[in-house]
Design a protein around this nucleic acid. Structure first.
Lengths: 148, 148
DNA sequence: TTTCAATTGATACCACGTATCATTTACGTC
DNA sequence: GACGTAAATGATACGTGGTATCAATTGAAA
């Protein structure tokens, strides 16, 4: 269990789903638990694989639909990584920068306040109105550096 | 003709290709001109479409191969945008932040020195070794704001 | 319990991208 | 300029990730 487990609560995702007019099924609850506890970015295919180990009859389309729904509610965030752009991580309540270790795959969130300031400056300097920013960092995490 | 036309020189791309052991064909030259002059991110399919208007017998695989080669030489840079992650823009000689207008699609490069400093700070604070960063900004460009 | 819209899973389908391979082409060498 | 060879090309077939469809099932409000 990593850092995120203390912050992301699957039950709150279920509440959010209900609040948005969804009928929460057992399948969705299982998927929410799988996705909310992920410590490295998970693709829909990977989530499907994990789901079928618990409940083999789980359908592929269901997983894609659920992931899409959770992304729409901003509970999941799409990761634009090295091996494709179809992996997902839980979104933190506060906007933060994301670091991904290229060795172990683990994700870590970093304070983004300085980035927010920087974006604000760029906005004023360029005259553009910036509505969304996407910053992801890649490299070797502190632990993997020691295990060399 | 926009800002990039003054900075990106297709002929230098051809030189770079030759220097890397490629045999530059007419097809490649045409594709290089199409891609080097793009002012908004272009997908391989879009580049293929543009190529066939000039030379209808152009093959699909050729376009994908050329784009891949140019990306490998860091002459093209992959854009992780809203409509997929398969669009490409010319890489500027200096690393810079990229802004994309969601209204007109045009891309604009912004000074990234402050970002480099920020990443360096994050690196020291977290203990991670950061080898690559990816920042893209989205919003409404100065021109499109006026045309409202 | 009833009712109905949301959800599900099977199937078929589509788009984007890739492997294969015979033919053509660039370009160093003679 | 002609030659030889390795790279590039384009047609075709194939693979994979993702989506549309639809009959059957299920959640939850009344």
């Amino acid at each position: 269990m990593g850092m995120l487990a203390r912050i992301i609560d699957p039950d709150e995702w279920l509440i959010a789903l209900r609040e948005n007019g969804c009928r929460v099924t057992d399948v969705q609850e299982m998927l929410v638990r799988i996705l909310a506890h992920a410590e490295s970015p998970l693709s829909a295919e990977q989530a499907w694989e994990a789901a079928r180990q618990i409940r083999p009859e789980t359908g592929r389309a269901t997983v894609y639909r659920t992931v899409e729904k959770l992304e729409g509610l901003k509970l999941l965030r799409r990761i634009h990584g090295y091996q494709g752009c179809s992996h997902f991580m839980p979104t933190l309540p506060e906007p933060m920068m994301l670091f991904i270790c290229l060795v172990c795959g683990r994700a870590d969130y970093l304070d983004s306040q300085p980035l927010d300031d920087l974006i604000h400056q760029s906005e004023q300097a360029s005259g553009h109105h910036i509505t969304e920013s996407r910053l992801q960092l890649f490299g070797t995490c502190a632990i993997c550096q020691q295990n060399r």
